[in-house]
Amino acid sequence: MRTSDDPSLYEEILVSPMYLAGSGSSGDAGFAPVSHWPHHYLDDGPCQLVVTSPDRRIQIGWFGDDFELWKITAAQEAVAPPHWTATFNHVTPPEIVAGLTTALAQDYAASDPYENNGRFLTNPSTYWADAVRPLTDAGWKQDGGAELGTVEIIAPDGQAGVLINNRRSGWDDETFTLWAGPRGWGTRAEATFTARTPSHLIAATAAVMASSAPVLRERHMIHHEVEHLVTLTPVAQAVTVAPAAEPSVSRAPTPLDVRRTAVTQAVHRAARAPRTAADLRVMAAQSRSSSAAQYRPGSLAPAAAARPSANSSTPRRSR
């Protein structure tokens, strides 16, 4: 059993499948696609940071201390009620959030803000399969035991899935829930989407869940109840076993290279910016890089088409 001062707790590891990697105590990956959008720091409220599109029709809120860590909305106008809402809980890997924020950034760049249009406001497909096609294409299968009026599609390892509630009664009802991990406050990742969320945005989020690419974490970030369900590869080992590059050929950056570059850039940003809650996370990262044995606290604080069933009213079940 490891103790809190065990240096191996802070060993950098590659985690697969990604959807069981947890949040990593940082939302950087989820905010990266919209890093050029306006940032609004709200240190006195439960929502600590809001990143908005330039016209504020898209809002990405970070609730650093709440169960629902992310709340993302889109509206016809900046002061209008949300057309749709997506939420991601505190266990959801920010790389999954980035699937949605990347698609939103692309949609907004192609929109005309003066016309109040944009693909991020289009109506969803009438076929639920369009929203989850990346999962079914990756071999996820429909579970025959789902409740009446719902559809559930499960990953091959049985540790993730999507629940589709076809018995909605209103536009603000949650109709799609992506989940991963065993039941429990600290182990179950959940992402929910309300009824009017465009299908391609759900699909963009699902596509990240279907990816086989591992993600970088520190060992202590993996919940002990999930550790036996994932493959953990120390970054140092991954770098050691990788074939050496020829001197005359430029090599692709290793995960360790990417990590070091990200920390260096974050430290430089912190030096130029006010000391916000986000900056405290950067300072912690800087101190961690100086000594692997030093205690490092958590930081701030994210298949063919089938027709929906027409007759339903059972609420969504939680796995």
Rank of each mutant, 00 (worst) to 15 (best):
G99E: 03
L178H: 02
R259T: 00
S212F: 03
S53G: 03
E152K: 14
W179C: 07
G118P: 00
A32Q: 06
A252M: 12
R168S: 12
A303V: 13
V215T: 15
Q237Y: 12
L178E: 01
A204E: 03
N116E: 12
P81V: 04
T3H: 08
R217N: 07
A210N: 01
T122W: 09
P255R: 07
A203K: 01
F63L: 13
A310G: 08
S125V: 00
A207G: 06
T101M: 00
Y108E: 05
P33C: 07
G149D: 07
A242H: 06
E218T: 10
L256Q: 15
I153M: 09
A74P: 00
R168I: 00
E147M: 12
E227T: 13
D6G: 03
T73C: 03
S199T: 09
D5E: 09
G161M: 04
A310R: 15
L163R: 15
D5T: 06
G118F: 13
P46N: 13
D66A: 15
A303R: 07
W70H: 10
W128Y: 14
E147T: 10
E147K: 10
A131T: 05
P134K: 06
S290A: 13
A103C: 06
A204H: 07
A238C: 05
A146D: 01
A244V: 10
V258A: 13
L300H: 15
T254Q: 13
H224I: 03
G61T: 04
M283S: 09
T240L: 14
L42G: 10
L178Y: 02
I154M: 06
V91E: 02
F193M: 01
S312K: 05
F31W: 08
E218A: 12
T150C: 08
V239K: 09
E11F: 06
D137C: 09
S199A: 12
R217I: 01
A262K: 14
A266R: 14
V249K: 14
E147Q: 08
T187C: 04
S8M: 09
V258Y: 07
S248A: 15
A270R: 04
P156G: 09
A155Y: 02
P124A: 07
A293E: 07
A129Q: 11
T150G: 08
G144I: 13
P297M: 09
G144Q: 11
H223F: 01
A277T: 11
Q265I: 08
L256I: 00
S169T: 15
L100A: 04
V226K: 00
G45T: 12
E77N: 11
T197Y: 08
P33M: 10
P214E: 07
A129K: 05
Q237G: 06
G118L: 08
A29F: 10
